[in-house]
Design a protein around this nucleic acid. Sequence first.
DNA 1: GCCATCGTGTAATGATCACTACAGCAGGAC
DNA 2: GTCCTGCTGTAGTGATCATTACACGATGGC
Lengths: 293, 293
Amino acid sequence: MNRNPPKSGDQRLVLDRIRDKQSELTAAERRLTAVLMDDSLVAGMQSITKLAEAAEVSTPTVIRLARKLGFEGFPDFQAAIREEIAARMKEPLAKLDAPSTTENKDHIVSRFAMAVSHNINATIDRLDPAEFDLVARLLADPSRALYVLGGRITRSNAHYFFNHLQIIRPGVSLLDSSPSVWPQSLLDMDERATLIVFDIRRYEKELERLASLVVGQGANIILFTDQWGSPIEKYAKHTFRTLVEVPSSWDSTLAINFLIEALVAEIQTLHSSTDRIAALEEMIGESRIFRSN
Amino acid sequence: MNRNPPKSGDQRLVLDRIRDKQSELTAAERRLTAVLMDDSLVAGMQSITKLAEAAEVSTPTVIRLARKLGFEGFPDFQAAIREEIAARMKEPLAKLDAPSTTENKDHIVSRFAMAVSHNINATIDRLDPAEFDLVARLLADPSRALYVLGGRITRSNAHYFFNHLQIIRPGVSLLDSSPSVWPQSLLDMDERATLIVFDIRRYEKELERLASLVVGQGANIILFTDQWGSPIEKYAKHTFRTLVEVPSSWDSTLAINFLIEALVAEIQTLHSSTDRIAALEEMIGESRIFRSN
DNA sequence: GCCATCGTGTAATGATCACTACAGCAGGAC
DNA sequence: GTCCTGCTGTAGTGATCATTACACGATGGC
């Protein structure tokens, strides 16, 4: 390729330069770099006007950033980006992660990303969209009382789900982590109640025991578990199996979180209680958004 | 591959169009397409003047080719090329493709998966591996006291991180959600202390206030925020920006969880305190594994 | 050999662009 | 409160750009 414009001295990659200077950048400049890094600098191929519009900043801000990164002006900056993209396009398989040397391939983050990618894909694969929709409708029904319960590790997931459900609709309770206080909630669980349980390996005896009692009372159970399946499956009306293995000593609950977030999105749509959210924000008094314009 | 770029009416790829019309092209136009195909269209990102020079043709020839290929003019042609390159660059390290049949393409789960895929990839993209390693080492150092704090939504993430850190190493505290009890912990934060804060949009004033106090005491802050950046960034020694936008009324903290899990994996490796885990499991008395195989 | 046709480049045009100068404004210091 | 500093956008400029009109030259039919 013709590299007749020998750039402005510096040979480092644009992405690296951005990362290096990230801490010195101003708010508007960061909005810009966010847009640029969003699609691996491709946004920087547009004219300065378009790029500025996309990032919602002014054109001088773009020029100032280019200079801060060590380029003479926008054309110089853009030429560097073009060369960088050209170099990356030449490589057989576009690898997004490493702007970079091969050493990053083995970095824990890369290996983790591949595992997570597989986990979420496989989780979606074994998901029945019809069942997903059914569960979403079920959870969106405010006449059904909901109880949420997690295990030792999955308690955070339970809390996350509870946190959102509680804002979207009434009648949601988070069961305490201590089994000693469960009986009080158990009393209220009739056939209009639904218990959402999270139980991945090192499945917990207490959860199973509670599940059997809950079913005995006529309530339904929705279970989030791992690929091997918690013993609670036999009590559950709906089961979501997720993949949890990653290159770590710990299991990953990312696929579970994925389902939770997708369900929350769908439930919110079904319930469409934007007024409820607005009211809540009013109460909390935090509705101010910090984006600078 | 995905042919999402909507372009100017026509959906076909630029490269395909060139191949289709190759036989109808004139000598000068072929010189042009040769240059373009040489580096996967990247040459087409320059100005029309530069491109013409590179191919040793005149600028009107470039316009005539663009029109022959079905574009309105050079800008239209260039926009199509840019989108095509963008699509190719996005080719994720972890491609969470839409599951199975086309009918499901519009299902919330599929749309969610695509957004999440992009979020995690872009998050990795803007991550500095060296900083990641540095933070992992910092958090693995048992002589540093750790404090974990989340906002309204990110409290679950904070809890998740805390939950794991606490098992791996001593000296980890989760700050309560109620600001009224923060001062007690604040007292203990000296220059050997590190505060891990989660703050995504609808950035919370209380968190920022605490952050400034903490820094005043000489402690370090590690911040997990969104792509726009919490105001706490200016206090933080290390900042991890993640993408949070998904087709939902709610922001997604999946990319944050991704970083947490990856950090936990690395910290665990560095600390290699398997004995500590074993001891803990002994105490909990839950060490029986249910795996079916 | 003459003309018609097609391919191509040159030159001139409005449009857009990159860039500068300056003013407004927010946040921090005192 | 008041200043000050630094960030940011607006407006105006020359420069570059994409495009058009047109002229030249090559080719082929008659």
